[in-house]
Simulated scan of single mutants.
Amino acid sequence: MRRGLVHVLAWSLATGAAVTLSWWGVHTVMTGTVYDRPRALPITAADATTQGAKPLASSTNRATPSKGSVTPSSPSPKPTETPRTPTPSKTPPQNTGPSPTTSGQVKSYDTDGGRVVFDIGATSATLVSATPGAGWSMQVWKTQTWIRVEFGAGADRVSVFCTWHDGPPRVEIGNY
């Protein structure tokens, strides 16, 4: 009986040590992969639709069924309304000056490894989002004068550099 208790105690200690070591290793690696979340850009009057500020649908909100649309409980096989798509408003954009949170144009760059979106201003840039393609991983480096996004898959590497240390921001894409 005593011998069995010693074996169970030894097994419990070894298992606890292994779980602790594994958790610490995974935690250390995952902490290094976190980057700033993309920020939402403000919507100006030029971005408004003719339907006002009411969104049609998004990936996180389900559209509420309209009066004539088909729902699981409705017996009608066809909707009576046609879906509407947003159209840009015809009003000219109002020049209210740059917002302190945005400084320029939002530009996206599609590469073999994924997609990178920058908010490019006159003297600096910020990373809006970076999304790796299927089968690709991603790393992001940021400093005061440049941002680098690198996509990797096996031995293939695609880097997207945005630099502004010696002039206005410019973007360079390189395959390695």
Rank of each mutant, 00 (worst) to 15 (best):
V8A: 14
V8T: 13
L9Y: 01
A14C: 04
A14S: 14
A17M: 08
A18V: 07
W23T: 15
H27R: 10
H27L: 12
T31Q: 14
P38A: 00
L41W: 06
A48I: 06
A48L: 08
A48D: 01
A53R: 05
A53Y: 12
K54T: 13
K54S: 10
K54V: 12
K54L: 15
S58D: 08
T64M: 13
T64A: 14
S66N: 01
V70T: 06
T71W: 07
P72G: 13
S73M: 14
S74E: 00
P75Q: 03
P75K: 07
K78I: 07
T87V: 11
T91K: 12
Q105M: 10
V106M: 13
V106K: 14
K107I: 11
Y109L: 03
T111L: 00
I120T: 00
G121C: 09
S124K: 14
A125D: 02
A125P: 11
L127I: 04
W136G: 11
S137H: 09
Q139K: 14
V140I: 09
T145R: 03
I147K: 02
D156W: 07
R157T: 10
V158E: 05
V160R: 00
F161H: 13
G167C: 04
P168L: 10
P169T: 00
V171N: 01
E172I: 04
